[in-house]
Design a binder for these strands. Sequence first.
DNA 1: TTGTACGCGTTATCAT
DNA 2: ATGATAACGCGTACAA
Lengths: 341, 341
Amino acid sequence: MEQITIKEIAKLCGVGVSTVSRAMNNHPDINEETKQKVLEIIKKYNYVPNNSARNLKRSDSNTIAVLIKGITNPFFSDMIQVFEREAKKKKYSFVIQHVEEFEDEIDVAIQLEKEKRLKGIIFLGGLSSHTEEKLKQISVPVVISTVDVPNLKGKFACVAVDDEEESRKLVNYLCSLGHKRIALLAASKEDASIGMKRLKGYRRALEENGIPYDEGLVAWSQDRIPTYSMENGYGLTKELMESGQEFTCIYAVSDSIAVGACKALFDAGKRVPEDCSVAGFDGLDLAAYYQPSITTIHQPRREMAEAAIRLMFDLIKEKPVEKRQIFQAELVVGRSTRRLP
Amino acid sequence: MEQITIKEIAKLCGVGVSTVSRAMNNHPDINEETKQKVLEIIKKYNYVPNNSARNLKRSDSNTIAVLIKGITNPFFSDMIQVFEREAKKKKYSFVIQHVEEFEDEIDVAIQLEKEKRLKGIIFLGGLSSHTEEKLKQISVPVVISTVDVPNLKGKFACVAVDDEEESRKLVNYLCSLGHKRIALLAASKEDASIGMKRLKGYRRALEENGIPYDEGLVAWSQDRIPTYSMENGYGLTKELMESGQEFTCIYAVSDSIAVGACKALFDAGKRVPEDCSVAGFDGLDLAAYYQPSITTIHQPRREMAEAAIRLMFDLIKEKPVEKRQIFQAELVVGRSTRRLP
DNA sequence: TTGTACGCGTTATCAT
DNA sequence: ATGATAACGCGTACAA
């Protein structure tokens, strides 16, 4: 298949390449007639301009990118929709870039920025550590979403909830129901991001309630299974039950994990919450739709997404902004937890 | 921020640009010493080559792309993972391209092919109609996944289940349980793709069982809500109940919708399956994890993904292939359906 | 209003 | 082994 280029279109139209270019890009200085003729030929020959060449030549681009670590995470679904809608509203084009588990999201960002002449970058998920230093290699505005990064300077900002505090709030609630042996389905031991913060909140709540922290009640995720999956919750809960530990409540660091936990309990002939309470985190739709509905911390994802994109536009326009927006999450009490008799 | 280019790196190293290029791309004709020196400087100055320029110059690229319509659909999650793994195994690089609801996936494909010098394209979802003619504008191998397209020629192939037949199988099973008034939660009326096929299967099964098709039992999805969502299932079921129609069973064209239906039933004080049976389609993890587990048609997504990527590589190598691979799906009976007394 | 020619940052070809 | 230099396909001054 021959690659048809702008030159050949020009030749076919009997005009210069610049005229073709003008026709495509809605430039003002062009005769309406010739424009129509050119567009006709373009359509007829199914000519599509090469984006790489465009990106190379252009210096700006009105494109913002969202880099997502864990694109399969339903938590991000709503947020993506908000980004798409708002970007379109502002006539920005919008690209989603999936970052694989093993990839360094900042490297990907740096590369993409050059490739597409981005106007800004939004991170969704990931960004566990190693930030600061490397982030500076990005020269466009950056909004980090879902993870709280203190001391951001310059054209960086973040939108998040206080994972540790919200986690503490939830576990505190569980304690208030009389639970003393609360198992934790944690992220992997290496996790230095939100998984760890939620763990910290768990420990603080226990401490405040005079309950000793018991390693035996913590089930750590393995790396071979996606952490935030129902499957993982199922496996961890099974392990926990087989370990012979006694517990009256399970707190999973995400709703998907919590659902897996419920299933494992059901399969073992237990009832939720009569035999064991279960709580999650995130406030996915799933938590509300599950039977029984899952007690969880609901993050205001749509609002957070709206804030993130607004922050992005403000940073682009160099307006002054609040660089660290921490949202209040909401404790949603479902039917999966109950007061200990 | 100054854009640092290969020229400046060359200058800094005291060598020519071609030497820098050779160092980066692991070319054989280069002195190991100079190579190391160049790489050092590159690292020191955080130089990252511009991908657009690369793509522009390169003629091939060993990249395959997956175009996904509905990236938030959990059905695709597993499949994506398979693609990533297999592509890496074969030393191919792999890009995921999200296609927005209103976008024409073929247009996106054509553009991306030129931009990235793709070796092949896999479609996931979408591709409802208008194919054939336009598809020909793509000049690399194409594998269409999840939707059955007959009469594919040349470098095109597809992997799918027989949606109509599987749907018929499921509804037939529901009939065998004694259900005569089976409500259908359908895709939108305009849907010409799998939604319609599943509808057809529903109608055929009814016919075979001597049950008249009743428009009143069909709830059509509206376009303002994502069709394959729990929220949609909830809304449709509520409508259905409010319409005063009698039914003993609900068949949703996807598991997410089915879960939403269950929730609506629960909220109305009904039990599943005692007061109403519920069945879905797809065989998502969710169906197995839900309480009660959802009776569904399980599509072998991993196998389908493996077949798709294998097909892709074979097409690239111009090996002869079976261009239309229809997989057998499995009726999984859950606890959400029961025999009518 | 239109066409010519240059440059965007790379890679690859060809001398050296 | 290395360095000029010509493409790659497009946008855009600048000249006409």
